[in-house]
Amino acid sequence: MNETLSKASIATLLAEQAYVSDDAIVMSVYLSFLLKKPLLIEGPAGVGKTEIAKVIAQILETKLIRLQCYEGLDASQALYEWNYQKQLLYLKMQEGSDLSLQEKEQQIFSDDFLMQRPLLQSISSEQVQVLLVDELDRADEEFESFFLELLSDWQLTIPEVGTRKAKSIPAVVVTSNRTRELSEALRRRCLYLWIDYPNFEKELQIVKAKLPNINEDLAEQICVFMKELRKMKLEKLPGVAETLDWATALSAMHIEHLDKDIVESTLGVIIKDWQDQRETQLSLNELFEKVGVKSKIG
């Protein structure tokens, strides 16, 4: 990890990568460098948690190794796996050879036959890498336990060959959508950052940073609309990712102002639940009044 980076330079580098941050984000990223601690980021879906890891990789000019978590994720998918087909093939080819069983075994349990998965990859390089463990809450507690083992000692044990120590300690970013509570042990090993939906000003900044050519009025209307939409009691509130998708779509269609027809026909870009869509459609007039485009109400 690069501890020579100052806090101010991190703020600048984040901005250069078009990541609109705030003081809390900058401080957390900086401290994770300084203290060499993983950064645990929680928050609703689509607010830019994963993006932070990508931006850190760009800042450090290194590779991003991503481990997408899911229920049932186990060591063979997260740590390593032996290439059994290749081992079998090798043994077949060696059937007539003079190699002893012990020699054969040594051969087939060497690096040539080892398939490195994200966690092993992240500690196998001399250069510091960024390890993104995405949506850790989706994985089960068993996985969390062996991930903890890695975070504690920065080494992995492969029974056939022994213990592998980290050549360099990766910058680790762990994200969670809070579909289950992560363990206290894991929290203690990480720095914690909560990212919520942005306020109007921040969201507008994000839209303008990601889509520099967007019509200013449209960008503002989109952000006010999203702010009001998030006040509704919807099942799945749209995140910044949805705002950006919507802004990109409307911008590509050369739309300059929101109106009811446009919103109705593109609602699927920001709302992904049919019940939510229905409720939004019923509240469109009210939403438009708040956005301040009364004249456009059809």
Binding site: L40, L191, Y192
Partner: peptide, 18 residues
């Protein structure tokens, strides 16, 4: 504020605490 964010980044571990 910076002092506060520093304390926050290190001492907070849960959303409710945040």
């Amino acid at each position: 504020d910076e002092h506060k964010f520093l304390h926050k980044a290190i001492l907070v571990k849960k959303r409710q605490e945040f």
